[in-house]
Computed example of a mutant assay.
Amino acid sequence: MPDTTTIYSDIPDSGTLGGRLARARNAAGLSAAQLARRVGVQSATVQSWEDGRSQPHANRLPTLAGVLNVSLSWLLHGVGPAPAEEDPRTAQDLGPQLARLKRLHRETAEIIVRLERHMDRIAAH
């Protein structure tokens, strides 16, 4: 047995901090502007971090990890579980399902009204 051990046995994410930041932001379903607002910076700053032109100050890193629901070790070094991939469904994909659900809701409401009227007639006799 070797005299050293690793804290994580999987292969680390070899991407850049900016790449991991963008990946986590996308997985969280946030735009750069939304992340910027939550962290308290300009959206251009987030873009600069993601493009690798600059890096977040150390005091911002725990906030970024928390907002993006990733570990600080993954964000900084790619060590640990990566964020779940973004759900590939879009609003366009879900639109027909929502329309069907609304139609069923209206139909159910109509049936309830008819049933209540019928029960009122029965009770009146």
Results as ranks from 00 to 15, higher is better:
M1H: 13
P2D: 14
P2V: 07
D3K: 10
I7E: 00
I7L: 11
Y8I: 00
S9W: 05
I11Q: 03
P12D: 02
G15Q: 02
G15C: 03
G19I: 02
A22E: 08
A22V: 04
R23G: 01
R23Y: 05
A24S: 10
R25Y: 02
R25I: 05
N26H: 09
A28D: 08
G29I: 03
L30C: 07
L30A: 06
S31C: 02
S31M: 08
A32F: 00
A32P: 02
Q34P: 04
R37V: 00
R38W: 02
G40N: 12
Q42I: 01
Q42C: 03
S43Y: 11
A44M: 04
A44D: 12
T45P: 07
D51Y: 05
D51N: 15
Q55C: 09
H57K: 15
A58Q: 14
N59I: 10
R60Q: 15
L61P: 03
L61D: 09
P62W: 12
T63E: 13
L64E: 06
A65F: 09
A65M: 14
G66T: 15
V67Q: 14
L68Y: 07
L68T: 08
V70K: 07
V70L: 13
L72W: 01
S73F: 01
W74R: 06
L76H: 00
H77Q: 07
H77L: 15
H77D: 00
V79M: 01
G80I: 03
P81I: 04
A84G: 13
E86K: 08
E86M: 04
D87E: 07
P88Q: 04
Q92E: 14
Q92T: 09
D93Q: 08
D93N: 10
L94R: 15
G95Y: 11
Q97P: 00
Q97S: 07
R100E: 12
R100I: 05
E107L: 11
A109N: 04
E110W: 05
E110V: 01
V113I: 12
R114H: 14
R117G: 12
R117C: 08
M119T: 10
M119E: 15
D120W: 11
I122E: 09
I122F: 08
H125S: 13
H125R: 15
